[in-house]
Design a protein around this nucleic acid. Structure first.
Lengths: 241, 241
DNA sequence: CGTTAACTGTTAACGGTGTTCACTCCGGCG
DNA sequence: CGCCGGAGTGAACACCGTTAACAGTTAACG
């Protein structure tokens, strides 16, 4: 059976167990936050001994990394579904959809969001050009936004700051990423980066509770900010209310 | 001596020990990140037994909270010194100074920054109107920015979005904070919030390594963004380079 | 088919953590 | 002086990630 892949019964069993482990880890993460997903806790969740998990993951950190990669993938799929769900929406509308979708996901899964986008600060280690599956999944996630912005620009180039306004040093760095951004000029890459930076900052602030002192419900503020950013990208946005 | 406060010799000794403990915690935080500042590690650092620390802090979390409050205070002092250090600078210049100062501090102390502004996510507990010293210190910190923006507006009101553009719900929330913002109208409060949100997001992204994929050195990008935000606040900013 | 090797799981143990308890000091107060 | 209370101790508990030595099962190969 399936001689091509050489997939044996044990391989399938193993894959199933790995999935079970990650599912248990997700459950613990959802219920008790990041600190609740421990090696022993996961093992306990599926009636195993803690050392048994070492047959599937090299360490606790490896498990967490795999979990992060999965979460990235799931979030990416959610956003893609949102992007392609409404065939009536134009490119700008899709941009609004996935921005709102990211915020909704972050608010619904704060612990998961913190794991993905919070501080990997304790690791200012040697220059590791991360090729981990987690990093790749993060790239796949970011590409959803990047590609959409690039499509918007391709369809109707939005006005962007001139090279002189940005300064030579910044332009040099931006032009390095021009190819990655579908050949967009530095100013347009700059605006794309601004879009992402503001969106990220907005959601971080809200999820991390850094906005409570000013706003009870940041929903309206988020919409207004999104409107501003959309304007900068030359989109005609729906006025609030 | 000092009968008013009833400050006895033991009280002074105690305060000194508390300071020593927090100093050791800071050292560990600086050297090994947030995870390195453990109860036993701190005790080890000053030749004490772990349980001894319970005479000074009710728990490990209490120690961390006290540390956070101290860090907030220190950061606040740093920014205030920066603000008042150059008597030549006008209000807008001061705003640029403290924004850059915050970024510099964050980059120089990433672990500390993560502790202050990173995810307190795991605690979505009951509605606790935080009156902890940490929260108060955070307010004192935020006020440095808030007051400066309010002074800028007072000196020369910057153009701000109209109530209609913001939407009724958002305006209602903003007006609730009008008094806190020196009587500024909703649109101006909105712009102040935008200033802070963008600054925070920018620094978070850089410190948390969320910008590495796009920019090696985010310094120029930061300056350009600061310039944009300053423009929105009606400041005449120095063009880069 | 039988043998062998690899895989999955176990228990025991090590060093680490935060925390509590019972106990000893000793300085300052009435 | 007597004594209370604060400071500090070591032992212990329950948890954590991780390793080692061992047993049962399953797949692969001659």
């Amino acid at each position: 059976m399936n001689l091509k892949t050489g997939e044996t019964r044990r391989d399938r069993q193993r894959a199933a167990t790995v999935a079970e482990i990650k599912a248990a880890a997700r459950k613990l993460l959802l219920e008790g936050g990041a600190s609740a997903v421990g090696l022993r806790a996961v093992a306990r969740e599926l009636g195993l001994s803690a050392p048994a998990l070492y047959r599937y993951f090299g360490s606790h950190e490896d498990l967490i990394s795999a979990l992060i990669a999965d979460l990235y993938d799931e979030l990416t799929d959610t956003l893609i579904a949102l992007r392609d769900g409404d065939p009536e929406a134009d490119l700008g509308g899709k941009l609004f959809l996935i921005a709102g979708g990211l915020r909704d996901w972050a608010l619904a899964h704060p612990a998961e969001f913190g794991l993905l986008f919070g501080a990997p600060v304790p690791n200012p280690l040697a220059g590791d050009h991360d090729l981990t599956p987690g990093h790749q999944a993060a790239m796949r996630f970011g590409a959803v936004f990047k590609d959409l912005v690039a499509q918007v620009y391709r369809q109707q180039p939005f006005p962007h700051p001139s090279d002189e306004a940005l300064g030579a040093e910044l332009v040099a760095q931006l032009q390095q990423k021009s190819e990655f951004f579908d050949g967009m000029p530095a100013g347009a890459v700059y605006l794309s980066l601004t879009y992402w930076t503001r969106l990220y900052g907005l959601i971080c602030m809200e999820v991390f509770g850094q906005l409570h002192w000013a706003l009870e419900d940041a929903g309206a503020y988020f919409q207004a900010q999104l409107f501003e950013i959309g304007e900068a990208l030359g989109l005609d946005c729906p006025l609030p209310e």
